[in-house]
Nucleic acid binder design. Structure first.
Lengths: 246, 246
DNA sequence: AGGAAATATTTGTCAGGACATTCTGACCTC
DNA sequence: GAGGTCAGAATGTCCTGACAAATATTTCCT
């Protein structure tokens, strides 16, 4: 039961000790050294063995509990969760997802220009109707086939975006590189039939089912940094979401 | 800046102190006593004023930061987030959502019986192919109109479910009442055209776009407690998801 | 042998203190 | 006036210590 996993600590590193511990436990789980269902040593023993205090160990374990890797129960102990949890809680963009899946994403930029916003967009971005925001329209391909039609509105002066940059990289990647720290996203997911224009762009029949997503993303200050309205070919794509309840 | 909000503590209550603090701060935010962007007093002052230690105050604040209500910045302080965050992070069922929206949900149970599982369901529920599980099929109405067709598989002996109970209450509500503690859900959301059977049940044309969701829910031990495959009328319903990145 | 009570184990909560790191703003210098 | 430096203020990390509460295990009695 009591897996004797080795954890190296580097006290001279700027990386917090609790984080070093958490990462190495997570790595052991990923590797399979800690099988699902196996029990960790109790907190006091662990703290003792690593030369750390119990709060530090608790912080490390808490971090992994929040991520859904471990389970704690008073009077029992800490165990690795049984079911395999797909780790897709992160705020990812379609581009990242596709590249990770080895699908060779490509992008065609259809529009990239400041435009006056309508009432609804003004509301979510915290602007007044008539103010300008950056309007972005892209057609996304995967493995050569059209996959999605993406519409975005962003505050001006948020990041220097160019059509060239957007062709080779995802929007989220560019925003992150520009120092934008996205933290919360609100998504509304629905479906509808393709219009004639959409069908033509996406190489579908008119009336074909499309997956729609309207998303607003906020940074760590709670300011809206992006509002998107996207449609995906339902025949080629589905969204995956993981919810963790605390 | 330094809003002077009153917080009552009940030290004789079994509710943890940090949670009492967190709830009352959250309530003040909801009420509007703490405006978005306003700064909280610093942790040491707060601890002092409430007669608590700093770790306890930190735990309360951390809880709200995790829920996306507060933002902390080293060297600066703690602020209420600017954007209004819709709080739909919780694991909810369609029934709960509808009732909250005042839509008068109703349910017609089409099937409720043990059935041998196929390979795919066996896999996600952790059973062997050929084992039996409880099969549940429901038609959900909102304000008198058909809205969704719900298929579920649950482990036998998980909870005592009856057709009568399922007509008046949601599945999640019944599971929770039976002591099942759901914690993680993995959802795959897509869209497709309605088959003839589905169209008839849902009062749509054949080929109409439907929103599909395949979900597996795990309890706090990581064991699968429910696997569902649902279709919704896209013309009447969309899903809302909030992601928080840590 | 079976059931109930006592005990041990383990995580949950809380206190109080120390030092490190980061951000802001004021001040000074060039 | 622009830029750099320094002090203050706030959160981040880590420590020691103690008791409470929930669960599992053992022991004891019938």
């Amino acid at each position: 039961m009591t897996a004797n996993l080795a954890i190296d600590l580097d006290r001279s590193s700027p990386v917090p000790l609790y984080f070093q511990v958490a990462e190495q436990i997570a790595e052991a789980i990923r590797r399979g050294d800690l099988a699902p269902g196996s029990r960790l040593d109790n907190e006091i023993l662990l703290a003792d063995r690593l030369g750390l205090s119990r709060p530090t160990i608790r912080q490390a374990i808490q971090y992994l509990v929040d991520k859904g890797l471990l389970v704690r129960k008073r009077g029992v102990g800490t165990q690795v969760v049984h079911g395999q949890v797909k780790r897709s809680v992160e705020l990812t963009s379609l581009y990242d997802d596709l590249r990770r899946a080895g699908q060779e994403p490509a992008t065609k930029v259809l529009a990239l220009e400041p435009r006056p916003v309508d009432e609804q967009v003004a509301q979510v971005l915290g602007l007044s109707p008539g103010d300008e925001a950056l309007y972005l329209e892209r057609l996304r391909f995967a493995s050569g086939e059209p996959l999605a039609l993406l519409h975005n509105w962003l505050p001006l002066a948020l990041a220097p975006l160019t059509a060239e940059g957007l062709q080779g990289r995802g929007l989220y990647e560019l925003l992150r590189a520009a120092g934008v720290r996205m933290r919360v996203a609100n998504q509304r997911i629905g479906a509808r039939a393709a219009s004639a224009t959409e069908a033509k762009l996406l190489d579908e029949r008119r009336g074909a089912p499309l997956l729609t997503m309207i998303r607003t993303t906020y940074d760590d200050q709670g300011r809206a940094v992006e509002h998107g309205s996207h449609v995906y070919r339902a025949s080629h794509y589905s969204l995956e979401v993981t919810l963790i309840e605390r």
